[in-house]
C-alpha cells in the first residue's frame, strides 16, 4: 500500500478518488444529507487526536498507581478523567506490559485502532505486511522496529477483530524514578503504545 500512495500535484492529488470524494461531498451537501459544519466538525474531531493523548495516559499511570488501576480496569473512565473523549460505542482496553509480558496490537481484518484517543493509525499499521505478519511472527516484526523482547518474556499479540480498541501501557523505563510527569510524557512514543517498540529511555 505504501509506496503506491498517490502524490499531491499543485496542491491536489492525482488520485481519481480525490475527485470522487469531493464530488460525493458536494452532492451530499446539495441534497442536505450533510451540512458544511458537520463535515468540518468531523475533520476537526480527528485532527484534535494524536499519540500525545496516549502518552499522557501512560505517564499518569506511571506516576499514580490508582490511576493505573483505573486505566487497566476502565480505560474509558481514565481517559475521561484526563479530559479525553473515548470512542463510542467501541470498547477501549489498555493492556499492561510487565517485566515478564510484552503486548503487541494489530488488526488483521482491517486496521482497528483507538482513533478516538490516538488519532489516525500510522501507514505501517495499515500495511498488508504488518496485518499479515504481526500475528504469526510478532518477534520478527518487533525486531524490524528495533526491539527484541528477551526469550523469557511472554509476547501476547492482540488481534482487535471486533468491537474493542487496544492500547499498550508500556513498562516505565529504568532510571526515570526522579522524572516529572511532563518529562515522562516525552518518553512515550506511538510505537510503544502499539507495542512494536518500548518507550525512549
Amino acid at each position: 500500500m505504501s509506496g503506491h500512495h498517490q502524490h499531491e500535484r499543485a496542491g491536489r492529488t492525482t488520485s481519481p478518488y480525490a475527485a470522487r470524494i469531493r464530488a460525493i461531498e458536494a452532492l451530499l451537501l446539495e441534497k442536505g444529507v450533510l451540512t458544511e459544519p458537520e463535515v468540518q466538525d468531523s475533520i476537526s474531531y480527528m485532527e484534535a487526536r494524536s499519540p500525545a493523548n496516549g502518552a499522557k495516559l501512560v505517564a499518569r499511570a506511571w506516576m499514580d498507581g490508582r490511576f493505573e488501576e483505573l486505566l487497566l480496569s476502565d480505560a474509558k473512565a481514565a481517559a475521561l478523567q484526563l479530559g479525553m473523549e473515548p470512542e463510542h460505542p467501541a470498547e477501549f482496553i489498555v493492556v499492561k506490559n510487565t517485566p515478564g509480558v510484552h503486548n503487541l496490537i494489530v488488526c488483521t481484518l482491517c486496521s482497528c485502532y483507538p482513533r478516538a484517543i490516538l488519532g489516525r493509525p500510522p501507514d505501517w499499521y495499515k500495511s498488508f505486511e504488518y496485518r499479515s505478519r504481526a500475528v504469526r511472527e510478532p518477534r520478527a516484526v518487533m525486531r524490524e522496529f528495533g526491539f527484541e523482547p528477551p526469550e523469557d518474556v511472554e509476547v501476547i499479540v492482540h488481534d482487535s477483530t471486533a468491537d474493542v480498541r487496544y492500547m499498550v501501557l508500556p513498562l516505565r523505563p529504568l532510571g526515570t524514578e526522579d522524572m516529572r510527569e511532563d518529562e515522562l510524557v516525552e518518553l512515550v512514543t506511538r510505537d510503544s503504545l502499539v507495542g512494536v517498540n518500548v518507550p525512549r529511555s
Binding site: 499479515s132 500475528v135 504469526r136
Partner: peptide, 10 residues
Amino acid sequence: MGGSPGGPID
C-alpha cells in the same frame, strides 16, 4: 490476511 506471508514492513 492474518498469517499470510509478507515482506519487510515499510
